[in-house]
């Protein structure tokens, strides 16, 4: 898998319709052995890239969901304290140094996502999701892993990667990431898809959605996105709405304006947004779909 066309085709086969630039970014990940930082609004399909990539490589997806307060013990490794205590009990009376060496060995180490990702025989896809939610300290800790693909465990020393994982980081931009982290990554900004690509995404993901209906849905969603909304619908919302419409049996949006209005709840996630899209507004937007 070398060219971006092949990558785009492989992603499409796994249900992810990528644009040429994303396919290029993925080919560069392989060529330069660099992590890929995906930035963009919530719901544009950043996490899906990692899932599709795992499917393309037929490899494991290891996911680290970031949150405020995430630390090394949850992300990298932890000692199995219960087993260590049992071992100490079992060897009571023995040489303290020998026991210490034993209980701080691999046998008592619990792998967390980051350690697991660099110790797999087959390179997995490591998804570090919503890195902007993690603290600055955790971001700094990641630098060693992302540049040298090694981690330091005080009791065991430095552990280098058995294989280099395909690392994908995502960020919604809620916090500015450090330059140091950004410089270690390839960058790709994931924008909302254009109408054509969104229609193809709908067709690929929703069984029973015809080309004409998919195009109508994509056009309608694009029009909705141009309205002043608090929460602009992402691709995930589009797919929910498409699934609802297909499930109800809609074949043409223009023939079912009432159903369109009633199912807009799939796209609009706040009361304020729902009240903005009145019947009149929906009618106006439907006019653009034709």
């Amino acid at each position: 898998m070398k060219t971006r066309e092949e990558i785009a085709q492989a992603l499409a086969a796994s249900g992810y319709i990528a644009d040429g630039e994303l396919a290029t970014a993925i080919s560069l990940m392989q060529l330069l052995k660099r992590p890929l930082l995906l930035e963009g609004e919530a719901g544009v399909g950043k996490t899906e890239v990692a899932k599709a990539l795992a499917s393309v490589h037929a490899t494991e997806l290891i996911r680290l969901q970031c949150y405020e307060g995430l630390d090394q013990s949850a992300a990298l490794y932890e000692w199995n304290y219960q087993r260590q205590l049992l071992a100490i009990q079992a060897h009571r009376g023995g040489d303290a140094e020998t026991i210490e060496d034993q209980i701080f060995s691999e046998k008592y180490l619990l792998e967390r996502p980051l350690l697991a990702a660099i110790r797999r025989a087959k390179p997995p896809v490591l998804l570090i999701d919503e890195i902007d939610r993690a603290d600055d300290e955790f971001e700094a800790f990641l630098l060693e892993l992302l540049s040298d693909f090694q981690v330091s465990i005080p009791e065991l020393g430095t552990i280098s990667a058995t294989t280099i994982p395909h690392v994908v980081l995502t960020s919604n931009g809620t916090r500015e990431l450090s330059d140091a982290l950004r410089r270690r990554c390839l960058y790709h900004y994931v924008d909302y898809p254009d109408v054509d690509r969104e229609a193809r995404i709908i067709m690929a993901r929703i069984d029973g959605s015809s080309a004409s209906l998919s195009l109508q849905i994509a056009r309608m969603v694009e029009s909705v996105r141009k309205e002043e909304l608090r929460k602009v619908p992402g691709v995930a919302e589009t797919l929910d709405w498409a699934a609802a419409l297909v499930g109800i049996g809609v074949r043409d949006l223009l023939e079912a304006p009432e159903t369109v209005q009633e199912t807009l709840m799939c796209l609009l996630k706040t009361h304020e947004d729902k009240s903005r899209l009145t019947r009149e507004v929906t009618q106006r937007l439907l006019g653009k779909v034709a």
Binding site: T24, E39, G173, R182, Y187, Y189
Partner: peptide, 18 residues
Amino acid sequence: LLRSAFKHLFSARKSDWE
């Protein structure tokens, strides 16, 4: 292709990207 590759390589944030 070179432009796309360089864009991924040299951009670090949305303003660079644009």
